[in-house]
Computed example of a mutant assay.
Amino acid sequence: MPGALPYWRLSGFYFCYFALLGATAPFLALYFDYLEFSPARIGELIAITMLMRCVAPNVWGWLGDYTGRRLAIVRFGAVCTLISFAGIFISKSYAWLALVMALHAFFWHAVLPQFEVITLAHLREQAAKYSQIRLWGSIGFIVAVVGLGQLFEHLSLAAYPLAIVLIMAAICISSFWVPDAQPRHRPEFAGQGRFIEQLKRPQILGFYLSVSLMQLSNGPYYTFLSVHLEALGYARGAIGGFWALGVLAEIVLFMFMAQLLARFSLRRVLLASFLITAVRWVLLGNLADHVVVLIIAQLMHAATFGSFHAASIHFVQRSFGDRQQGQGQALYAALAGVGGALGALYSGYSWSTLGSSWTFTLASVAVLAGAAVIATCLKEERP
């Protein structure tokens, strides 16, 4: 990495930001279960955070592109996320928790799309090395998921909100350590009109539809995997370990992503990611009681998130100009939120009525539909 690149500052922020995801994805549903909410109520509470992901990134993305003050938005969002979530100490009623989930998520989902633009602005011509910075987010996820998994083996889940608040404080601190950067001007996009006009291109529409379907399929995984594994007899420490294994596979993928993108087109990388994910959901829904199968399924997270996310970030960067990067990344996050919210909702109701196997099977069908969109709409381009 060149000396001018603030590698560790950028990496440090990703570490803290995704440590929060590592603390929420595996344990938030368990915490709500500890509070004795039903599966349907759990699905609704988690869906609220994802619904905010549908709205917030677009609002903040437009503001970031209009003002150019993306880093200020990142810092403001981090601080407000902390303040909003701290309201969880006031009450544990369903209505109050719904408000806390909505408010903190509105600010939390403002942060990452803007930070992705800042990171790519620092990288400039070295954009293929994005994954080498982003992998520290995956390491942060692993540290959180393993550490909290071990912690909750010995402590009650009553300590969960305090752990979340401490991680949010770390995000705030790291956001003030990062220097600002602006995307470079790209003349090839100068005459392509407004952001909304570019969205009418079939390739762009197809990409964003496939993103929604991928995140829809992730609904059962992020909402009920921990509950599913606990019902199969796995200890909480082991559950944290299985989450960490998936992210470890993601880290390995990130280390080789630059070489992968140099050899294969974005279309092929995305298509392979979708097909592998379809197989993964079938394995988790039907054979997760076999440890070897569960390990294989978690290693497939390298495709479900790793190659899918890295290829998606590159696709957005290539598809929009410098004054539209924030909106492009924000729409990627927002449509992922739409899919994630619908996935959390359907999995909450499906889990209660159809069970785990059919819930994951429906997820597999959704991601296969996304693969069909990728195959149909995206052009085959040179790596």
Rank of each mutant, 00 (worst) to 15 (best):
G3L: 10
W8H: 14
W8G: 15
S11L: 05
F13P: 08
A19M: 15
L20A: 15
L20S: 15
L20N: 08
L28W: 03
Y34Q: 09
Y34E: 10
L35D: 06
F37N: 08
R41L: 14
E44Q: 13
L45V: 00
A47I: 02
M52T: 10
C54W: 13
C54R: 00
P57A: 02
W62N: 01
D65P: 09
G68C: 05
R70T: 09
V74P: 06
V79G: 04
V79H: 02
C80H: 05
S84V: 00
L99M: 12
M101W: 01
H109D: 07
A110Y: 00
L112V: 03
F115H: 14
L120Y: 09
E125L: 03
Q126S: 14
A127D: 12
A128S: 14
K129Q: 14
K129L: 13
I133T: 12
G137V: 05
G137A: 06
L151I: 07
F152A: 08
H154N: 05
A163H: 01
I167G: 10
I173R: 08
S174H: 04
F176S: 09
P179Q: 07
Q182G: 02
Q182W: 03
P183M: 05
E188A: 13
A190K: 08
I196K: 12
Q203W: 09
I204T: 14
V211T: 12
L216E: 12
Y221C: 10
Y221T: 03
F224Q: 09
V227D: 09
V227Q: 13
H228D: 10
A231E: 14
Y234V: 06
A235E: 13
G240Q: 06
F242I: 07
F242M: 14
L245V: 05
I251H: 05
V252K: 01
A258S: 14
L261I: 08
F264H: 10
F264I: 03
R268V: 03
L270N: 02
L283Y: 05
G285D: 07
A288I: 08
G306E: 09
A310C: 06
V316M: 00
S319N: 06
D322A: 15
A334Y: 00
A334D: 00
A334N: 00
L335Q: 00
G337Q: 01
G337R: 01
G340M: 02
Y349I: 03
S350W: 01
S352E: 15
S357G: 15
W358Q: 12
V365G: 10
A366Y: 01
V367S: 11
G370P: 03
A372I: 11
V373Y: 04
V373C: 04
T376S: 15
L378Q: 13
K379L: 11
